[in-house]
Simulated assay, not measured.
Amino acid sequence: MDAVNEPMTPLIMLAVDGVIAPFGRPGSQWQEHRVVADGLTLTLWLNPATGPKLLKLAEITGAELVWATAWDHDANVEIGPLIGLPTQSVCVVGQDAPPDLAAKIWCFKTPRIAQYTAGRPFVWFDDSLTLRDAAYLRGVEGVGDHLLIHVEPYRGLTDDHMERARAWLAKNRRPRGGS
């Protein structure tokens, strides 16, 4: 297959708050950690099994993991090592939606996700996604196929969420060597 016809590598966009770090301890496998972001010490619940599961999901689907969180690059320093993730790419999302889009979306990250993904297929795990965000993404020219997976913020990312992503990403798998 030549480079022109080769599918683009799909992305797995990851939020931290409410997704990787639920608001509360959803089970005994979640461990309490103190982390620092923007000079503030925060207490988070993290499951050490999450990182290996995400790495496996990325490996079997040929996808790339990307932080899509207000933690920005701090996610690689403070969160990734605690759950077994190596340094990942970061979609810098900022803290606020552009004023002209605030009424069209719910999640402030949505316009930056649309820009960052640049036509690539993607799965986005977030606790702030609504139908307004889905409609916005459908209306932006050049946004690739995508699956938005709303994560309940007090439960965090579950195996069911990852299975939904795996099934969807299987349709967008990048070929590995060979014809």
Rank of each mutant, 00 (worst) to 15 (best):
Q29D: 15
L55W: 10
L40S: 13
P81V: 09
F125P: 01
F23Y: 11
H73M: 07
D133P: 07
D145H: 11
T61K: 04
A103R: 10
A135I: 06
R166W: 08
T50F: 12
V151N: 01
N172W: 15
Q29S: 14
T43S: 15
A135N: 06
F122C: 05
V66C: 04
N76F: 09
A103N: 06
Q115V: 13
G156F: 10
F122E: 03
G18E: 05
W45M: 12
T158A: 09
E59R: 13
A135L: 06
R164M: 14
D96P: 00
A165P: 10
R112W: 03
A135W: 12
R176T: 14
V35T: 11
P10I: 12
T61W: 12
V77T: 15
T87K: 14
P10F: 14
F122M: 04
L101P: 05
A58R: 07
M1C: 11
A134K: 15
A3K: 08
R173G: 02
C107S: 05
V4H: 14
T61M: 06
R164N: 11
L157G: 04
A167G: 10
A102F: 06
N76P: 03
D100A: 14
R25H: 10
H150N: 03
C91N: 14
L131V: 07
P98I: 04
K109V: 04
Y154V: 09
D38F: 14
P175C: 11
V123D: 00
V92M: 01
G51Q: 09
A103Y: 04
W67D: 04
V35I: 14
P111G: 02
A103P: 02
P81I: 08
G80K: 09
M162P: 02
G142M: 00
V66T: 05
D17V: 03
P10L: 15
D126C: 01
